[in-house]
Design a binder for these strands. Structure first.
Length: 491
RNA sequence: GGUCGGUUGGCCGAGUGGCUAGGCAACGGUCUGCAAAACCGUCUACGGCGGUUCGAAUCCGCCAUCGACCUCCA
């Protein structure tokens, strides 16, 4: 099999993936800040890196996947007196901050489960790693790249940039950063406007606070990822993922902090997923096109024509490459929905396929192409295109227009099991166990359709059509086959 | 303003020097009592203008346009 190639943002090139420890992979992905419902935007990195997690495991790696939960809140801005997002929300809703955190963590996990996203190996919280973060800040001070002022600790970007390259990941030049930095913090205690807080002194009204060598405070917003990723994955580790929007300054800061703490870069491969637009527009609360995952699943948003099943969302995203922007619309979603249906129909057909003497279709070749697609920087849209080629094969065999021998049939079944279910992480949602009433309903439908066969035998087309049309109106899809009939309930 | 990335057929979305991406929709055909499903076929596009090349949607230049980041954001 060919090498697994991934695009490394650091080099802006596709590179062969070579793990630090043969057979093992450590990956870290920036998770959510739990101060609100999970929205459409959260699902893209979750699905992208779930695909990576699944594929790495599939090709035989033992993977430790760490995805953090940010629950101490980020600074609103440097001028802010220290109130963080979570504390602000807590005041609004008159809840304890950790209650907010718990509530939204729960709903995030539920949404992820609905999207069939595998739980990471470790899901550390920032609040649970204050000690590690303080230790990281101490290391930064010790190496001379951070300084304390009045209870806060800042990263000395200027000093760092004089020795190392600051901005290499996002392609920024330090001079440009100077000219473009917004001022207004002239009275700031920072040495330079580029410096960022790694530990922030807590104002009296600030609720979330912890003791530290510099007084009561809370960690800066880049500190947690440095502390938690290296705690569980060592340094350097293999893969760090996240959304494109986190590249600067968050990931840039992580690199600088890592170098300051350990003397070398913390990550080998940086991977970034692209963002989602809605009808060509950026998604944002101010634009009113901000859709939460629950709204999507229930269809309860003004922009949605209907509810979309989690698997439809997942499939829709996988039909685009993770590094491409993806535009979200009702039309596109409904197209994805139909395509997914067609794929699953073929998969279920596969079970009943009868092997022949010879194969007129090239199953090993198809398998080869599927792996090639995934190995090329996880090209899921190409993979899906190949799977649809396979759908044509399956349908042809089913129609007796093509043949497949038993070895190839087994290979084909394995192929769809591997790629559709294990790697793409799709699942059929209709097979939710038949309740008793559904079973009875099914029997009634069978009874009606058997009556219709009688009618057809008697060439009583009026009665025959009446039965079929009435069932169709009720939402059933009726198909006549040589053996009799098939039906399914459309929602 | 700076940096980066897009602009592909009715819609979504791959590809990236010559060879059908795929899905959805539409149309025609096969099958069927008629349908549905399935199958076969059709629709064959790459923002504009120049340049390089035997050959460019793909490389280069200019222009237009959209967006992201530069501030919390997946």
């Amino acid at each position: 099999m060919s090498d697994f190639i991934i695009y490394n943002t650091l080099s802006r090139k596709k590179e062969v993936f070579v793990p630090i420890n043969p057979g093992h992979v450590g990956m870290y992905v920036c998770g959510p800040t739990v101060y609100g419902e999970a929205h459409l935007g959260h699902s893209r990195p979750a699905i992208t890196f779930d695909l990576l997690f699944r594929y790495l495991k599939h090709i035989g790696y033992k993977v430790r996947y760490v995805r953090n939960i940010t629950d101490v809140g980020h600074l609103v801005n440097d001028a802010d007196e220290g109130e963080d997002k979570i504390a602000r929300k807590a005041k609004v809703e008159e809840l304890e901050p950790m209650e907010i955190v718990q509530m939204y963590t729960n709903s995030y996990r539920r949404n992820m489960l609905q999207l069939n996203i595998l739980p990471p190996s470790i899901e550390p919280t920032a609040s649970g790693h204050i000690i590690e973060q303080i230790a990281a800040v101490e290391q930064m001070i010790a190496s001379g790249f951070a300084y304390e002022v009045n209870g806060s600790v800042y990263f000395d970007v200027e000093k760092y940039a004089s020795v190392h390259s600051y901005g290499k990941l996002s392609g920024r030049k330090i001079e440009d950063l100077y000219t473009n930095t917004r001022d207004l913090d002239t009275q700031s205690e920072k040495k330079s406007s580029l410096d960022f807080a790694v530990w922030k002194k807590a104002a009296p009204e600030h609720i979330m606070r912890w003791p530290s060598p510099w007084g009561e405070g809370f960690p800066g917003w880049h500190t947690e990822c440095t502390a938690m990723s290296t705690k569980y994955l060592g340094e350097p580790f293999d893969i760090h993922g996240g959304g494109l929007d986190l590249m600067f300054p968050h990931h840039e800061a992580e690199i600088a902090q890592g170098v300051a703490c350990f003397g070398h870069e913390p990550v080998h491969y940086w991977m970034h997923n692209n963002l989602i637009t809605i009808n060509g527009q950026k998604m944002g609360k101010s634009l009113g096109n901000f859709i939460t995952l629950d709204e999507l699943f229930f269809g309860s948003h003004a922009m949605l024509e209907k509810a979309y099943l989690p698997m439809c969302i997942r499939f829709f995203m996988l039909q685009a490459h993770y590094r491409s922007p993806l535009d979200f619309s009702n039309e596109a979603l409904q197209a994805a929905e139909k395509g997914l249906e067609r794929l699953f129909k073929a998969v279920s057909l596969l079970e009943g396929l009868k092997p022949g003497e010879q194969s007129s279709i090239d199953v090993p070749g198809l398998r080869e192409k599927c792996y090639a697609a995934m190995n090329d920087d996880m090209n899921s849209p190409i993979l899906i295109a190949h799977l649809f080629d396979g759908v044509k094969m399956i349908n042809s065999v089913n129609d007796g227009k093509a043949t497949v021998n038993s070895a190839d049939l087994e290979l084909l079944k394995k192929l769809y099991q591997d790629f559709v279910f294990d790697i793409l992480g799709l699942k059929s949602e209709s097979e939710a166990g038949g309740s008793e009433s559904q079973e009875v309903l099914g029997n009634v439908v069978d009874l009606l359709l058997n009556l219709r066969i009688e009618a057809k035998k008697n060439k009583d087309w009026v009665l025959s059509d009446k039965i079929r049309n009435s069932l169709t109106e009720l939402g059933f899809e009726i198909k006549d086959t040589k053996e009799g009939f098939e039906w399914e309930l459309k929602k």
